[in-house]
Simulated scan of single mutants.
Amino acid sequence: MPKWTLHTEFKFDAAHLIEGYDGKCGRMHGHSYKVHLSAESNKLNPSKYLETSDMVCDFRELKWAAKDAEKGGLDHGVLNELVKVNPTAERIAEYIYKETDRRIPEGIKLTITVWETENSWVEYTE
């Protein structure tokens, strides 16, 4: 059976605080987040931008979170207001996964990796 795996990376800057955290992260601060997203599929699909079944999914749909917060993404937003859960790196990765999953065709296996700092990251998949 064929298999295709798309990979893309993007960055966004955002502010957050971790409510209830006993330490510096309990105060409002910002990060330059890096996201690696992989999308694996055994079939090719059409997209919002291409009617023929020639892609796993569109890279544009995978990179939605890099858009400005005022345009539906996360860039230059306050994650506490956008994510609606305590925005730890784990919850941010989960949020990006779920929002991406609803934008792409069914049957695509996603893996989301979010770097909060150069040396600290989390990976999320279902």
Rank of each mutant, 00 (worst) to 15 (best):
E94L: 15
K34P: 02
S32Y: 07
H36P: 00
L79R: 00
L44S: 03
E51I: 12
L79N: 01
K71F: 12
E9L: 09
P2Q: 10
G107A: 15
I112S: 02
T125V: 02
W115E: 05
L44D: 01
K71G: 04
K43G: 05
K3Q: 11
D22N: 14
L6G: 03
A93N: 10
Y95P: 02
I104G: 00
K11D: 13
E19A: 15
Y21G: 09
N86S: 09
A39D: 01
G26A: 09
E106V: 04
N80V: 07
M1C: 07
G20H: 11
P46H: 14
H36F: 11
W121E: 06
G72A: 09
T117A: 11
R102H: 04
L44C: 03
D58N: 06
L110C: 02
L110G: 01
L6P: 00
E9I: 03
R27G: 11
C57Q: 01
E94P: 06
T52G: 10
G30D: 07
E126K: 09
D58M: 02
D75S: 14
E9C: 11
E51G: 13
H36Y: 03
I108R: 00
V85D: 11
T8P: 02
S41I: 00
E106P: 02
L82I: 12
D58S: 15
Y49Q: 05
D22W: 08
C57H: 01
T8Q: 05
A39Q: 00
Y21N: 10
W4V: 15
I92R: 00
N119R: 15
I96H: 01
D58Q: 02
M28T: 10
K43V: 11
K43W: 07
A15V: 05
K63L: 04
S41L: 02
T100I: 05
K63M: 10
F10D: 00
H31V: 04
K84I: 06
R60C: 06
E94T: 11
K67F: 12
T100S: 08
E90S: 08
D68Y: 08
G30Y: 11
T117C: 11
P105M: 13
R91M: 11
T113H: 08
K11R: 07
T88V: 09
R91E: 14
V83Q: 01
H16R: 13
M1P: 02
S47V: 08
E40V: 04
I18Y: 10
I18Q: 03
T113I: 14
G72L: 04
E90R: 08
F10E: 01
V114D: 02
T125R: 10
I92L: 14
G107V: 09
R60M: 05
W64E: 00
T8C: 13
L62W: 01
